[in-house]
Design a protein around this nucleic acid. Structure first.
Length: 500
RNA sequence: GCGGGAGUAGCUCAGGGGUUAGAGCGCCUCCUUGCCAAGGAGGAGGUCGCGGGUUCGAUUCCCGUCUCCCGCUCCA
């Protein structure tokens, strides 16, 4: 990538986005979807290394949320839901954009932006009355929900193109729906439009009383869910950052209204700690308040990570108030209030939402921990690619190698593989030189390598190599499992998440 | 969506209107090899993104299309 600055991180050169994408394909982390047919924008497949890494990211999240909190429980709700859900949530009304094209310069704009720009300009010129009339007419057209009305407005009012400063030659106003639509019902008569969920949250809201009653929970409590969501975005850029099909890790925390702000702040801290516990550098994480609040939110922040292409959101934390429950209560005409046994009153809990993108976290982990490191002479010199993946999340945890491929070493190594693979995700390799095998596993992030050498035949010990330090310790075969369990145990990671 | 760049082997890329399209790395087989991408021999792998056009002949030129990258834009 021309002119990109070289970022040094963790004793090595950080990957550019391009290098990162290449590494992902080469080592089987991520492939573009349907590539033999020319690819399918905004969709990616996770390969032999990516699939386990992604699973481990979700596993870590689940443990940090559900396992670590007595008052947070899990849920796995369906992707398809009753269409009314999306009316109640506001998605049917808000989750689309109106676009208009100026045929003169072939530029496409979002209608609200064009009109806003023009009204601002009228105001700046002191034409307040005109500005107000335009805005009112626009709002009326918008309320109609019909593209014909909006098209007529653009033409009748000779709306100015913000870039040309002159009325545009406006084409028909078109609606771009950001939700995926499909049909339920096998015959034409039974057909009913249904949506692929654009967020997983609604599955939690509509189930919240079932969950609360069956798990006998009291406010404050949380419901956690990991699952796919779908959005028909306009453009896809930056690899895994914006996808048509993506996965979310969402936790909805139900609290008493007067405690909502306090919990909102508390969850920002906790969620930030989740990243820091993995070893993310604090300087590449930040909490950004939202400039524009969504229709449901009273307060909102993003946790952003500094990717090779700049600061990008990995997780959103929102104070959604009782908006969603109130709407569902209204649309379903079912009572959704919670009875608080301490206060002896019924109310709609307020909700603090933490919503992280699995794919974005995955990309952040690769960005943060994949480096090209210069080795000193003692380690053979030259450069190595090393994915300093947090060891609990590594796609392969232990690699087992015979030093050479003869003299009975492979047999011993294979026996060790058999024993270890009952406990850990292991790889066994005997081809190529030992150095090459180490490097191959450095590149996919395998934290530990066990090597069987000639001394093993004499005293039943092997070497245990650490990916990051390159150091080897001599260890008796019977002690291997205990030692590795100690090293790979999740409790250390989870303790870091919990500690304040 | 606009502007710019690019699609050639698994990866990174070179090439170029005219026989069998190349390199490095990787991959496979054999030999060699006592700890950090060693060496030798042999081998597999490409309808040059896809469709159409121009031409005696197109991977090369033209048009369209898809995908990727950069900038803008967009982003519940």
């Amino acid at each position: 990538m021309g002119g990109e600055e070289v970022v040094v991180r963790r004793g090595g050169r950080a990957a550019s986005l391009q290098a990162l994408v290449a590494h992902c394909t080469e080592y089987g982390f991520v492939f573009p979807s349907s590539e033999i047919y020319g690819g399918f924008a905004g969709v990616y497949d996770y390969g032999p290394m990516g699939a386990p890494l992604k699973r481990n990211v979700k596993e870590y999240w689940w443990r940090a949320m559900v396992q670590l909190h007595a008052n947070i429980v899990g849920l796995d709700s369906a992707i398809l839901m009753h269409p009314k859900v999306w009316e109640a949530s506001g998605h049917t009304a808000h989750f689309f954009d109106w676009f208009v094209e100026n045929r003169k310069n072939r530029k496409r704009y979002r209608v609200d932006q064009v009109v806003e720009a023009w009204v601002d300009r009228l105001r700046a010129e002191g034409r307040e009355g005109e500005a107000r009339r335009v805005w009112e007419a626009f709002e009326e057209a918008l309320r109609s929900g019909r593209s014909e009305e909006l098209t007529a407005f653009f033409r009748a009012y000779r709306v100015e193109d913000p870039e040309e400063g002159a009325p545009g030659d406006w084409g028909a106003v078109r609606r771009l729906n950001l939700m995926f639509v499909t049909w339920a019902g096998a015959t034409d008569e039974d057909r009913q439009e249904v949506y692929l969920r654009p967020e997983t949250a609604q599955g939690i809201y509509v189930n919240y009383l079932h969950v609360q009653r069956s798990a006998r929970l009291r406010v404050p409590f949380g419901i956690a869910q990991v699952g796919k969501a779908f959005r028909n975005e306009l453009i896809f850029r930056q690899f895994l950052m914006r996808m048509r099909e993506f996965e979310q890790m969402e936790m909805q925390f139900f609290v008493a209204p007067e405690e909502s702000e306090e919990w909102f702040d508390r969850w920002i801290d906790r969620r930030l700690r989740w990243y820091l516990a993995l070893g993310f550098d604090r300087s590449r994480l930040r909490v950004q308040p939202h400039k524009h609040l969504a229709h449901y939110a009273q307060k909102a922040v993003d946790i952003e990570y500094r990717f090779p292409m700049g600061w990008k959101e990995v997780e959103g934390i929102h104070l959604r108030t009782d908006y969603d429950l109130r709407r569902h209560q209204e649309f379903s005409r079912k009572k959704l209030t919670y009875f608080d046994p301490f206060k002896q009153e019924h109310y709609l809990p307020h909700i603090v939402e933490t919503s992280a993108g699995v794919d974005r976290v995955f990309l952040a982990i690769l960005s943060e921990f994949l480096v090209w490191e210069q080795l000193d002479e003692g380690s053979g010199g030259g450069e190595r690619v090393v994915f300093r993946c947090p060891r609990w999340l590594a796609p392969v945890q232990v690699a087992v190698f015979p030093l050479v491929r003869r003299d009975g070493l492979p047999e011993v190594a294979r026996r060790i593989f058999d024993a270890l693979s009952l406990h850990f995700v292991c790889a066994y390799e005997e081809k190529d030189s030992i150095g090459r095998r180490y490097r191959r596993h450095d590149a996919i992030g395998t934290p530990y390598a066990v090597t069987v050498d000639y001394q093993t035949l004499e005293d039943e010990t092997v070497t245990l190599r650490d990916r990051d330090t390159l150091r080897q310790e001599r260890i008796a075969i019977p002690d291997l499992i205990v030692r590795l369990k100690e090293l790979l145990d999740w409790s250390e990671l989870l303790r870091r998440v919990r500690e304040s």
